[in-house]
């Protein structure tokens, strides 16, 4: 009986742990730091930003049309919020074997063309995006620096209109960061959007 019970426990651990892992972070979780290569050849970690009040982590890439539609808005977020203590950290999560257009060289080229001022990192061994639970590009995680570490405060889309920045009604990311900077509560911690699934 004991053996059967142990076997059952073993089975349930094996069967259910990947599901928990798949989910990634929820609001309030402490996010992992990382050490990923930037387009300038240096390695970047959250802990490098000693003064940061938090981070706008964006899983994005060169090849997804939704990610491309948001490039200028991601750059604008960094311009506005890096000086206020919330820099953008972009992470390219795709397997470059399946998406050569997302290679480090291609990332460097795109960043130069677009004049990105934020770090554009590559999750080269694809170990970081699953911990966050990112499933697509673009996929935003807003982290707030706390004594416990970077706490997840928002997961989802940048705003409510990928097609036209001029027609946006709700700026989800801006609203969240503004509220965090003011130290007030905010309503929308999670949103959903169509994106390109991360290529494994």
């Amino acid at each position: 009986m004991k053996t059967i019970f142990s076997l059952f426990l073993l089975f349930s651990t094996v069967a259910f742990s990947p599901i928990i892992h798949d989910k990634g972070y929820d609001i309030g979780d402490v996010a992992t730091d990382f050490k990923l290569e930037n387009i300038d050849g240096n390695f970047v970690s959250l802990s490098n930003f000693k003064q940061a009040k938090g981070f706008i982590v964006v899983f994005t890439c060169n090849t997804c049309p939704y990610a491309v539609a948001y490039e200028d808005r991601i750059e604008a977020l960094n311009k506005e919020y890096a000086p206020k203590g919330y820099p953008v950290i972009a992470i390219m999560p795709n397997n470059v074997q399946s998406k050569p257009g997302d290679s480090m060289t291609a990332m460097q080229k795109r960043a130069k063309e677009k004049g990105f001022t934020f770090p554009y990192l590559i999750d080269a061994d694809q170990s970081i995006y699953p911990q966050y639970g990112a499933t697509k590009t673009p996929h935003v995680y807003i982290l707030e620096s706390t004594d416990k570490g970077p706490v997840v405060q928002y997961i989802g889309a940048i705003d409510d209109n990928y097609k036209d920045a001029a027609l946006v009604k709700i700026k989800y990311v801006q609203n969240a960061v503004d509220a965090l900077l003011e130290g007030v509560t905010f309503e929308t911690h999670k949103t959903k959007a169509i994106g390109c699934s991360i290529k494994i």
Binding site: G156, A157, D160, N161, Y162, K163, D164, L167, K169, Y172, T191, K192, A193, I194
Partner: peptide, 14 residues
């Protein structure tokens, strides 16, 4: 384009 309004209506898990 207001994807957050309709994605959960297709399925809450999506």
């Amino acid at each position: 384009p207001d994807m957050n309004s309709w994605i959960p209506k297709v399925n809450p898990q999506w």
